[in-house]
Design a protein around this nucleic acid. Structure first.
Lengths: 219, 219
DNA sequence: ATAAAAGTTTAGGTTTGCCTAAATATAATT
DNA sequence: AATTATATTTAGGCAAACCTAAACTTTTAT
């Protein structure tokens, strides 16, 4: 098994490299992890010995296939815990990160399987980022603007375009958050507003201004 | 804040001393923590410097008031997570410990507050052990053997004495688990068996053997 | 093309938490 | 009371993960 420190390096490399694609610099990592470059060099040598990264001195690191697998596992755990914290314990978006950062290192396959089940196999975290599958795949969902849905069509909120407090508060009042299950009930042709049902419980009318700012994926 | 290792020592001292009462030996701790006695001596010096324990060389340790406070906080976290794992994620009694052992070290006041709320402020963990309050108090519920209840009396199952699979499966079949609400319906003097109603729905006859292994607290 | 600047690695050191082996204190036995 | 046995501590080391300072590469700018 890997140490917490190792896991944090792997995760940081994954993020900085944009999913394991490009190589990452020592300084970049040291800034991201808030450690000194010398410490990073140290750790990269160790990770390289474990074949979690390809490391060429003075020329940066990249994740190996195995490293990428490990990264996705950690990210899966992190995002599932974020969903738990927001949906079940009513944390706000800004409160979750620090705690999820700790929970992601708890070791138990069964725990994550059961948590995933308990949460209803969510596909995005509270920030709208996709949750890797158990198999370690990061399926990129096709995102659509809510305004583009036809009557009867469904979608799960995955992203909002406007992050101003006023807008977020409005969504909150409506009962809409990332992960909410929406369905178009009716279309009002006069002003292109839509009647939307939220989580199969209540329904509201949203103006086309608002509809243009909400993105959904297929349920 | 305290390290995971420190927290584990504090918890072990608490447990071995029976709640912080008596002093605990180096060897006792080393066995309980699966480390060598020399390592324990080492750590005790450190904990003593932090005033978490009273440590007199060659004569054992005891928790200070502060140490006891810390211990109860950890135990509270551990037991709340156990409740979560069993009640929400459907872990079995034997699967919870290892995982709760890791989760108890996650640092966040808010997390524990919210978890407690989410679980409905449970008073005992899945093994029937009491959960310390947020204030750090261990209210000791009076536990009674089920066999000691008179006709009409009620109780909530808080623990069972026998943890062999056969017995647990039997209870499961009967529909009895920790938290079940029981009431004595009738007494059969011939063999001291009792007719017990379970969660106000059905009722069964339990032999005195079984009755002696089930403990309840006042509802 | 070469010197200066920036980035990276190595060398040597620290702390935490563990280890073994040796020394010392306490307890048990004769 | 003296000796043996057991428990505990001290001394010296090791690995992980960090640090600073110095050495070395690569890049940039003259």
């Amino acid at each position: 098994m890997h140490s917490t420190a190792e896991e944090n390096y792997i995760k940081a490399i994954y993020k900085l490299s944009g999913g394991g694609a490009k190589a990452v610099s020592t300084t970049g990592l040291s800034e991201s992890l808030e450690t000194k470059p010398a410490s990073v060099s140290d750790m990269l040598r160790k990770l390289s010995a474990k074949d979690l990264v390809h490391y060429v001195k003075y020329h940066g690191v990249q994740l190996t296939e195995e490293g990428r697998r490990v990264a996705l596992k950690i990210i899966r755990k992190h995002r599932l815990w974020e969903v738990f914290l927001v949906q079940k314990l009513h944390f706000t978006w800004d409160e979750v990160h620090e705690v999820a950062e700790q929970m992601e290192h708890v070791k138990s396959e069964l725990l994550i399987q059961r948590l995933d089940e308990f949460l209803g196999h969510p596909r995005v975290d509270p920030h709208g980022d996709p949750i890797p599958t158990e198999a370690g795949e990061l399926r990129q969902e096709e995102q659509r603007v809510l305004s583009s849905l036809a009557v009867e069509q469904k979608g799960v909120v995955c992203r909002v375009k406007d992050s101003q407090p006023a807008f977020l508060q409005y969504l909150n009042k409506m009962g809409i958050q990332i992960g909410s299950q929406l369905q178009v009930v009716d279309k009002i042709p006069y002003d292109n507003s839509l009647e939307i049902s939220i989580d199969k419980t209540k329904s509201v009318i949203l103006s086309s201004d608002v509809l243009d700012k909400i993105f959904v994926i297929n349920p």
